[in-house]
Structure formats: structure tokens, C-alpha cells
Design a protein around this nucleic acid. Sequence first.
DNA 1: CGGCGATTTGATAATGGTCAAGTGCCGTGG
DNA 2: CCACGGCACTTGACCATTATCAAATCGCCG
Lengths: 246, 246
Amino acid sequence: MANPLLKKLAQMIALSASERAAIGEVPLRLVTIRADQDIVREGDRPSRCAMIVGGISCTAKVTGSGRRQITAFHIAGDIPDLMSLHLDQMDSDIQTVTECEVAFIDHAAVRFLCERHWRIAAALWRSTLIDAAIFREWTVNVKRRSPERLAHLFCEVMARMEAAGLVTDRKCQLRLTQGDLSEATGMSPVHVNRTLQALRSGGLISFGNGELTIHDWEGLASLGDFVSDYLHLPQDAILTRDVALS
Amino acid sequence: MANPLLKKLAQMIALSASERAAIGEVPLRLVTIRADQDIVREGDRPSRCAMIVGGISCTAKVTGSGRRQITAFHIAGDIPDLMSLHLDQMDSDIQTVTECEVAFIDHAAVRFLCERHWRIAAALWRSTLIDAAIFREWTVNVKRRSPERLAHLFCEVMARMEAAGLVTDRKCQLRLTQGDLSEATGMSPVHVNRTLQALRSGGLISFGNGELTIHDWEGLASLGDFVSDYLHLPQDAILTRDVALS
DNA sequence: CGGCGATTTGATAATGGTCAAGTGCCGTGG
DNA sequence: CCACGGCACTTGACCATTATCAAATCGCCG
């Protein structure tokens, strides 16, 4: 199962032999992209999608006043620009945050797959709906007080990382700067720093050196008012997380 | 063309005769729902979708502290709970804001249609992607200063209303209370009031008695940093708006 | 007329932004 | 080996935006 597309779809639905075969024939182009590069830019009309295989990328917009606003983070298995399959033009930038390994897949191949296999289309559609659910949650989250906001963000990232199998001992690689966090939460960098210190001294988390550790999942989740329903994770992933984290 | 589903899909793609016929056979149930009622609740597992035919509804979440946060408004033609087709469980409430006319469509019928007609599936998928784009924009918008936020919201609503043919003379029905606006923007009701006064006295808008009028589209859009790209409106709708509004 | 919800206004307080300066940690180059 | 430069992080002081509390007004419907 070296094929990342096969891996992702197999996680989402039980694949038949013919579906596996069809997915196996989709040509992928694997590329490594270094940190802080654009994968796709606002206004682009791409003819392919990018699946993140490793590293962290983000969706961002630049406001009229020039400030960058991150609206989502993406980890392994995500296809951050799947929307380009149906929308004429990108309305956001997709950028690497850390160095990323990316698999490019032509739109034509995805369309071919979807037209012939309704269940695959439904699975991909579903994944875009989950993205939308996460955007909704961010809209809610952004209006919270600052410690709550950061706590919620950390819970979300950890839960998704865990579902992707990237967490051991409540710890995961998360090479984000405080500047990145400030662009994602809408807080000033200075205030991110102070809020992080509060979370740390409360014994909730460790964050630094490219790693996030959650010491008190219950406490962090209740502070951030985090309920994982909106991530629509498979039931078994949630169970695993509860065992692993609490 | 009394069939609202046919009308919506015809606006999105050029329909073939067989597609028209298939859509025409989808059973719809038209219902009138009075203001401030739930259409679907968080946690529900609906077996049907709701298309708004008239009135205004919203997507909302209730935070742990009990505050309601509106994440989207819906107007005629929107299917706010289309996500329920693929997600196990609703992660938000869908509620009427004004009295609404709603067409209920069984999931089974939509699936039947999508499985047989890839272009219809793609059109509906596309509409969920536009919803996601709007959520992204709200995430960005929510972090702006208050006059900017309200200006942006008004621009968005007006642009979508215009595309739906609900605007005459830069004016549309918008029976929202200041409380609704505060729940949508995350501002306090008091501050919404003061910000509205600023917009009014700046000659940008009139708002009250269930009507919104934009007197200075250019000014409002530039104040709110509004660029309509993210709405992915059909090109002709944009042209119409520019003529009508500027 | 009474009452209720929506809107308006005023005064006060706090969250969080901004400015400014300083610290610590590398990797580079002399 | 050490000095330098850059970048992320940290800290302190001040101030603007906006929330909160409280009360008054308005309009509408029964």
C-alpha cells in the first residue's frame, strides 16, 4: 500500500477489487516541496490536485491590508485543493508550512474515477464536506477568547494527527512557529506567546522545538470547548484517541 | 419551472432532456416553517435534505458557554444541509431566521439522481464547495475590525441575493435583527448597533424595517475588503450586479 | 392601555493590539 | 574557534477596540 490515494480511500470506504484496480491505475507524481512555498495560488486554474503525503501545509488568504490569514492546516492524507476539481478558480492560496511531500493527481484522472465509481466520488465529496465542517468550526472558534482558541486548535490538530497515525504518547511533530499560530488564530504574535506560556504553566501542553505534547487532554479540551464530532472521524479512530490520550 | 430543484440545477449547468426528466421525477415536499424554528438539529441523522425556496435560514452552533454562533445565512436555492447526504451526523443546527418555505428531498432520491447522472452529482458537489469557500471567507472576515466585518457581510448577502434575482434598486428584503447580526459577526449587540449607525451616517447603507439598501457599493465593498471571487458566481450574474449596483 | 422585543444611549472595564527593546539560538564565514 | 547576523521568541509599557452593565426609548401587537 505505497499508493497514498489508495491508502486514503481505503480508510474512508471498504474498497472492492475493481475499485482498487481503478485507483491503482491513477498516475501520481510525487514531489518534495520545501517550506514556505506556494503549492497553488489564489486565482490559479489548476488541472491537477495535490495530496499531502508528508509535512504540514495550509490554506491561506491575503487580506486587502496585506495580512495573511490561515484558514486551515493540512496533514498527510489531505487533498487541500480538491475544490479545484469543480471550481473554476482558486479562492485561496495553498502553501507549505514545513517541507512537504506532495502527490499530484490530474483532474482528468480523478474525474474518470468518479464518473465510473460513484462510491469513490461520494468518498471524495465527503472529504470536502468534512473540510467545510472544519471551516465552520474555525468560524466559531475564532470568536472565542485567546486561551480557548489556542487550546481548541491544538486539540483539533492532535485529534486529526492521531487519526492519521502520527501521534505517540500524546505527542506529535508540529513544526509551527508562533507566527504561524498567530496567522491561524488571528491573535497578534505577542499575544500568542503569552497565551502559550499560560497553557504551558497550566500544565496543559508542551510546545516547542517542532513538537506538541498534550499533558492534560481533558483539561485542554474543556478549556477549548473541543468536541470532536465536527471532524467526522471514523469511530475506531476516536476510540483509539480516547484510550491514548486520557 | 415551478420545480425549485430543477430551477437551481438549471442555473448551475446546461441540462439535457434526460437529466430534466430525471430531476422532474424527484418527489419534493413543500413546507412553510415559521421564524426561529429548527429545520435540523446538531446530532440529527436526517434522511432528507432541505432546500430553501423562500425566506432566510442560517447554520448555527451553540458553544459550550451557551452562546449561539451563526456560521452562514441561506437564501432561496440553497440546500443548507446537503452535507447530511454524506456525513453520518449533523454538526450544526439549521434554523429559520424568518418564516421560510422549504422543499424537502429524500436522500434516497438525491443518491439515485447522482449515481445515474454524474453531471448532477458534480453540480451538487460544486455547490457544497462554494459553501466551504464562503466559510473560509467568514473565517477571514471574523478577524477584521467591526465596521469592516459588517460591511463585508452586507456585500456578500447583497451579491448572493442579486444572483438569486432578489434585488431591485440595490435594495433587498433582509429581515435580520441586530441580534442576528451580532451572532453572525461575533460582535456584541450593542456594538452592532453603533457600527450600523456609523455605516448609515457614512451614507453607505440603509438597514431597518426588514430591508437592506446599499447606497454606495464601491465604498462599502472597499471598506469591507469585499471581492466576490470566493462566491464563484456565474459570470453573467456578476456583470448584472456591477451594472445594477455601481 | 400594557407589555414585550428590538433598538438606542451612556459609562466603565478588560481583552488584546501595537510599539519597542532585549534575549537566545543557530548557521555562516572569517 | 569565535564573531556576526538573522530569526524566533520573550518581556514590558501603553493604548485602542470592543465587551459589559444598566437604563431609557420606540414600535407594535394584543
